[in-house]
Design a protein around this nucleic acid. Structure first.
Length: 470
RNA sequence: GGGCCGUUAGCUCAGCUGGCAGAGCAGGGGACUCUUAAUCCCAAGGUCGUAGGUUCGAUCCCUACACGGCCCA
């Protein structure tokens, strides 16, 4: 095949959907009057001697093509009959409804645009091998219109979120992916090296600390929507690179951010689905605000009978309870880790309808502001839906001394073997010393929200190229 | 990291108490002038995930490994 001799363009192309709409009124054996130019991939062929039927699909839809020996002559007809399933072709012709009632394009001119020279996946069963669908996503998209629609829905969701924030007066910014020091989340980073600067750099685990520097600088409402990277396990809700929205709003607090978050999510659902009702894990839930606010301690108490926050900082009763419930808590060294484990094991899976948990222990929240009148608790929330955490936000800690102390505590935990602890970020503390206004912010997991809005139960189905082993 | 399941033609899948590896579709050749997963005929297509082991003989039984899936951490 001489690829260079193939056409370099196919202009003035009509989407197949436009043809279908315009010519829908044709009666059987009636022909349309105008010429159509359509292009796409050949997905079916039915020979019939001097008549050949082909199925042509573009992104907008599918239509049958009709090639007739009598109309085209030997040579052109042979060229059409030589087509392989999967070839990309451009066609010009008038519309015609066949005797059997199928809207078709009667081929007047035919061009091969690009051959498909490898065998096409089974047209009837589709591509079943999950591994191949992920490694060669183009085959999945080629053969499964639902897969294409899923990623279009994701794009509509992201567009809606941007619209919400843009309309709310937020500025979209881009902060470094390669960071000298990582922070903003408890996670292990990927490490890389800059050769000329001869220094190690980290791929960001969050954008938080940079975005809050911008709020210090006077960008009062900022957001960033992009990839974060966490060097940890792969699961149905974790991919090592994933998409996160973070936004920060000066002169607002945790409660304001919760309201904005639930509104953004509900609007995104409306934009993608035309409704705020989604089906998740066999249950219909409504994303319309307001979502219930439940204190973290109460949520745990409802399920296991004790409120660990009210109990003080004694890990032993919690450890004992874990033992009773047959949960292995041997990795949980501290009271805070046990609380975290209680949430993820007993509470999170049950939060199918959208719910905010609020009032988190300060030990789990090194960047959040303390709640007045509540010892050891910060103004923080996590949003859960479909049994997953989808967002995490708080009133931002703006006391540089407290922030430094929290970093030091994190560093101590790091030295004690917690490889997800924050390193101390002196420059960030310096920024706080210049004055961070009272600010609320949140991180929202875009992939997980896409799972909810497209009805998928694994992140791999909403990430185009999920992480795989070699 | 642990447990369970899977890996057979390009794709979708059969197969066997352990005895020469099967089909449909796709691809190749041919017939057929209104098909809809078109139909019919012909030929071709395989390191049965990889490496060992048991056996006269292994796609099948055993072990390890790789990759994937599900569950747990």
């Amino acid at each position: 095949m001489d690829y260079q001799s193939l056409p370099h363009r196919f202009g003035e192309r009509d989407p197949i959907a436009a043809l279908r709409t315009a010519e829908d009124g044709l009666e059987p054996e009636q022909a349309g009057t105008r010429a159509w130019r359509v292009a796409g991939r050949i997905l079916g062929r039915r020979g019939q001697g001097g008549v050949t039927f082909l199925d042509l699909e573009d992104e907008s839809g599918r239509v049958q093509l009709l090639a007739e020996l009598e109309r085209l002559g030997e040579e052109a007809y042979a060229a059409v009959r030589d087509v392989s399933i999967g070839d990309l072709v451009g066609v010009e012709g008038t519309a015609l409804r066949t005797r059997r009632g199928e809207l078709s394009v009667q081929i007047a001119a035919w061009q091969l645009l690009a051959p498909c020279r490898l065998p096409f996946p089974d047209r009837h069963h589709g591509l079943q091998d999950v591994e191949v669908r992920h490694r060669q996503r183009y085959l999945d998209l080629m053969t499964d219109p639902d897969a294409r629609e899923r990623f279009r829905a994701r794009a509509r969701m992201v567009a809606s979120i941007r619209r919400s924030l843009d309309d709310g007066g937020f500025v979209e910014v881009e902060t470094p992916v390669l960071q000298p020091l990582y922070g903003g989340a408890n996670a292990r980073p990927f490490t890389t090296h800059h050769n000329q600067l001869d220094r190690d750099l980290y791929l960001r685990v969050a954008t938080e600390l940079y975005l809050k520097r911008l709020v210090v600088g006077g960008l009062e409402r900022v957001y960033e929507l992009g990839k974060d990277f966490r060097n940890e396990g792969v699961s149905h809700k974790h991919n090592p690179e994933f998409t996160m929205l973070e936004f920060y709003e000066a002169y607002a607090d945790c409660a304001d951010v919760m309201e904005r978050t639930e509104r953004i999510v509900a609007d995104a659902a409306q934009a993608v689905l035309g409704t705020t009702q989604v089906e998740v894990r066999g249950q219909v839930v409504d994303l319309a605000p307001p979502w219930p606010r439940v204190q973290l301690g109460r949520a745990i108490e409802e399920r296991v009978g004790i409120d660990p926050i009210a109990l003080g900082r004694d890990p032993e009763p919690l450890r004992e309870l874990m033992r009773e419930r047959g949960v292995d808590a041997s990795n949980d060294k501290t009271w805070a880790q046990l609380v975290d484990h209680f949430v993820s094991h007993f509470v999170e899976p049950e939060l199918v309808a959208p719910t905010f948990l609020v009032d988190y222990p300060v030990e789990l929240s090194p960047l959040a502001r303390r709640k007045p009148g509540a010892d050891g608790v910060v103004e923080r929330f996590e949003a859960f839906c479909g049994g997953m955490e989808i967002a995490n936000g708080f009133s931002e800690l703006n006391d540089p001394d407290d922030q430094r102390a929290r970093f030091e505590e994190q560093a101590a935990m790091g030295r004690a073997g917690d490889d997800e602890a924050h390193p101390v970020d002196d420059d960030y503390v310096t920024a706080l010393e210049y004055g961070l206004p009272p600010t609320g912010g949140v991180g929202l997991g875009i992939d997980r929200l896409a799972m909810l809005l497209t009805g998928q139960d694994t992140i791999r189905e909403v990430v185009l190229f999920p992480a795989m082993r070699n």
